[in-house]
């Protein structure tokens, strides 16, 4: 997309600074305005942006910037540090249970990529740990959701537990868990129907499923293209279910992906993986630094900091 990189913007906002000598509050305000703009254009939630800017301002008024010969680059460095820190650690692993099976439950809004990502996780676990997962088809609402998971199971040669669409999701999960015990599957991945976080009865269904399956992982699957509501949505799912982590999908697109920051900052739960394509192998480890650069449109940032 045709965004000017943030580092360029900050440099421009502070250009001519060196001639004046001292950095003033006004200069800092100008630089933070550019940061605010970049974050909003990247779809970071506006409340999250406000908090973030407050943090940057506080640090920017400290001596590391004020006494620097290159205040612009110092600010960029601070932004990068704070943002990467907010993004959390890389390579957070899924929780693993002491006794088999380890249970993973996929949740999220409609169409975010839960079913596909369930398959991707199974694929990854098999490759990394020679796992023997069982997929449970607990979406009884979306037309052909069960077929979709069965096709994916077939492709991966992974068993899919299903009862069609006439039994409750709760019953299907209860029976699926039994089957996993009998067959000694080491992982169970539960695919649930997409739902709005404000849909009380469907959120209750998820609470019931959680109660029945006692999942070690409740993964919120979120679309990287989501706008401002990413924060509200993530908060809703987290409040209701106490999610354990997030997977961000469709990052193979050209979105800046500010939703990552909103979700992370609102839930304080780790981003586990990112989806980077439709194939079942397109699931990658999350890199917080890359994500920050992407959000800010700062591909050129690292080289600038190195010079600073």
């Amino acid at each position: 997309m045709a965004f000017e990189g943030l580092s360029e913007r900050i440099q421009n906002a502070l250009s001519g600074l060196r001639k004046k000598g001292k950095v003033t509050q006004t200069d800092i305000n100008q630089a933070t305005r550019e940061i605010r703009l970049a974050l909003l254009e990247a779809d970071v939630n506006f409340k999250v942006v406000k908090e973030f800017i407050a943090k940057i301002k506080e640090r920017a008024l400290g001596s590391e910037v004020l006494d620097s010969l290159t205040p612009g680059q110092q600010i960029i460095k601070i932004v990068n540090e704070e943002l990467t820190q907010m993004m959390g650690e890389s390579a957070v692993a899924l929780n693993k249970s002491d006794k088999i099976p380890t249970v993973i439950m996929m949740v999220g809004l409609q169409g975010t990529g839960k079913t596909t990502t369930a398959g991707k996780l199974a694929n990854r676990l098999m490759a990394e740990q020679k796992a023997r997962p069982l997929l449970i088809a607990a979406d009884i609402y979306r037309p052909a959701a069960v077929d979709q998971l069965k096709v994916i199971g077939n492709q991966l040669e992974v068993p899919v537990y299903e009862e069609g669409v006439n039994n409750s999701a709760e019953d299907i999960v209860r029976h699926g868990m039994q089957q996993a015990k009998e067959n000694k599957n080491d992982y169970v991945i539960i695919d649930t129907a997409g739902r709005l976080e404000i849909d009380e009865s469907l959120m209750d269904e998820l609470k019931n499923v959680k109660e029945i399956a006692q999942p070690d992982n409740i993964v919120l699957v979120a679309d990287a293209m989501t706008g401002q509501a990413a924060a509200t949505v993530a908060d809703g799912f987290n409040q209701a279910l106490d999610i354990t982590g997030v997977i961000l999908t469709k990052l193979d697109g050209d979105t800046r992906g500010g939703a990552a920051l909103s979700i992370r900052s609102i839930t304080n739960k780790p981003i586990l993986y990112v989806g980077e394509g439709e194939k079942l192998s397109d699931l990658d480890i999350f890199h917080p630094d890359r994500m920050s650069n992407r959000i800010l449109g700062m591909g050129d940032m690292m080289s600038l900091i190195e010079k600073a």
Binding site: D223, M225, T226, G227, A230, T255, R256
Partner: peptide, 11 residues
């Protein structure tokens, strides 16, 4: 267009 899409909708 998914109504929850942010600025990427323009692209």
């Amino acid at each position: 267009l998914d109504g929850s899409t942010g600025q990427n909708a323009m692209s």
